[in-house]
Amino acid sequence: MKPFTFERARTPTEAASAAARHPGAKFIAGGTNLLDLMKLEIETPMHLIDVNGLGLDKIEATPDGGLRIGALVRNTDLAADARVRQDYAVLSRALLAGASGQLRNMATTAGNLLQRTRCPYFYDTNMPCNKRAPGSGCSAIGGFSRQHAVIGVSDACIATHPSDMAVALRVLDAVVETIRPDGSGRSIPIAELHRLPGDQPHIDTVLRAGEIITAVTLPKPVGGSQLYYKVRDRASFAFALVAVAAIIQQDGTGRVALGGVAHKPWRVEAAEAEMPKGAQAVVARLLAGAKPTEENAFKLKLVERVLTAMLADVRGGRV
């Protein structure tokens, strides 16, 4: 870990402008991802801005019947919130499928969205990795890629975004609210927050230097059966091989987003029109153009099987 300076911000604007003043500064929330990365010198901020005191830890109703989730709301609190459990069950389920109880107690909404990939080569600073060291190459391509992305990949990077929560937010059409160093705010639809790797895999999101997330808003509830199935090698405390978030209505229409398959939560709205035709038709469009490796091609089949089972469960009244 490199030595760094530290400050506690009191308002979001103050935090954002402090970040702008210190090139390479980072916000720190729960620290459950950032600190690990700093110890390994994968992240080397010279300055840390603690955002825990900004009062962004509330969940409030919005005028249009949705919810506004403060950026600092802990994953545990968000998963347990009665309104979330009632109206946005897919979010609660996704959160509870992630990490462990102890981690969720610390992890925050913004921090979870901005956690970095779990590619093992990214974590080993001796290894080439374009995301960590731009231009050094991608070790996962041709290497151990069982966990990696199958779609939206590039020749530079095949990493996945590891968040469960983000997949649920994607299927719920959440919007991310930010404040920039000049005090102006903007709203970023969750679909646009994370980037595909392209030839700049070291840039995960569209956020600009110093831009701070203040909240995530959810539109008014859409009802339906809200399901989250996370497939993993052990029963708990493991990142998803594949995760399927689905909201399925009684009439057979619905939405679906995937985790563990791409550099961002993966959703193709056009594919959802196929929903009444069944999972195979949906997945054919959802994963059209997929480029899996030999080691992770099984993910395609897995997605289709899980979605098929979900649709059958809803049809059969089992969920």
């Binding site: 080993d124 708990s236 405390f237």
Partner: peptide, 14 residues
């Protein structure tokens, strides 16, 4: 490659 306890999975309670 998977040289930590996130990558090398051993059984958990569940």
């Amino acid at each position: 490659v998977n040289h930590d306890l996130a990558g090398y999975e051993v059984p958990v309670h569940a």
